[in-house]
């Protein structure tokens, strides 16, 4: 269980990182960015992925601000090197957007949260992960850079398929923005996993405001899915969600059981989000 050979870049500025990514793409198949490594390193070790090069961003100059959590008017800005554990522990972030801490508590275990990055989880675009669903529900965005400059990608344009984001192969995620909780709005998060800290069999996040009810789902579709449940009667929430979702069966749960969890958890998080307003 050892990775295949790869070239290793350790840039000290985001610009250098982008240059390395561009150069590797020019020369061949492109590089993967190594941040927390909690998904990438196991994939490398099991040789499920064999990228020719890695760009390790863990040694970027702190002045670049990629390890910072900032509370901005538009929301919580999370740099690409912010670890899950830091974001989970951030009181300011929790106050600005309580859904972050609620969801992060379900991300794996402390040792993984200590290394894994929140932005890395978003870029990895695993529909079973918590943070892509949270970003999608809140209508957040991702700042990305490349040798061509920087751009901001809205969450609804970010997740395009299983483990696939809309980033170009030579683009580097710089930070994510999670909109703050609006006055009078409430959020809630719930999931059922086989073991504490496992990927959810089904997870649901809800956002309830004066005029809207929305829920985001993980592990029941290829990409994190946001469903508008505004005006749906309480008793029909689960079925309304299921009409837009396609739960499938695997070794851990049948499709029917996942559908049941969609019903139970949708009702639960909408109820709790209302209560939290």
């Amino acid at each position: 269980m050892k990775p295949a050979p790869f070239r290793y870049h350790r840039p000290s500025t985001p610009a250098e990182a982008c240059e390395a990514l561009a150069a590797e793409l020019r020369d061949g198949a492109g590089a993967k960015v190594l941040a927390g490594g909690q998904s990438l390193v196991p994939l490398l070790s099991m040789r499920l992925a064999s990228p020719p090069a890695l760009v390790d961003i863990n040694h970027l100059d702190p002045a670049a601000g990629l390890a910072a959590i900032e509370i901005r008017p538009e929301g919580v800005h999370v740099g690409a090197l912010v670890r899950h554990a830091d974001l989970l522990a951030s009181e300011e972030a929790r106050l600005a957007q309580p859904l972050l801490a609620q969801a992060l508590a379900h991300v794996a275990h402390p040792t993984i949260r200590n290394r894994g990055t929140s932005v890395g989880s978003i870029v990895h675009a695993d529909s079973a992960a918590e943070l892509p669903a949270v970003l999608a529900l809140l209508g957040g965005s991702l700042d990305v850079g490349s040798v061509r400059g920087t751009r901001t990608v809205p969450a609804e344009e970010l997740f395009v398929g299983p483990l696939e984001s809309s980033l170009a192969p030579d683009e580097l995620a710089l930070g994510a923005t999670f909109p703050a909780l609006a006055d009078g709005a409430g959020v809630a998060f719930a999931e059922v996993a086989r073991r504490h800290g496992d990927y959810a069999l089904v997870g649901v996040a809800a956002l309830v405001s004066n005029d809207t009810v929305k829920a985001a789902y993980l592990s029941v579709s290829d990409v994190p899915t946001v469903i508008d449940l505004t005006d749906v009667p309480d008793d029909d929430l689960g079925e309304a969600a299921l009409s837009r979702l396609d739960p499938i069966g695997d070794i851990h749960a049948t499709a029917d059981y996942r559908a049941q969890l969609v019903r139970v958890l949708t009702a639960k998080v909408v109820r709790e989000a209302r209560k939290a307003r």
Partner: peptide
């Protein structure tokens, strides 16, 4: 064997 890893072979954690 579809679950030949500790991610999918569910050995209980202390929480279980």
């Amino acid at each position: 064997l579809l679950n030949a890893s500790f991610m999918d072979f569910l050995m209980p954690y202390v929480t279980e």
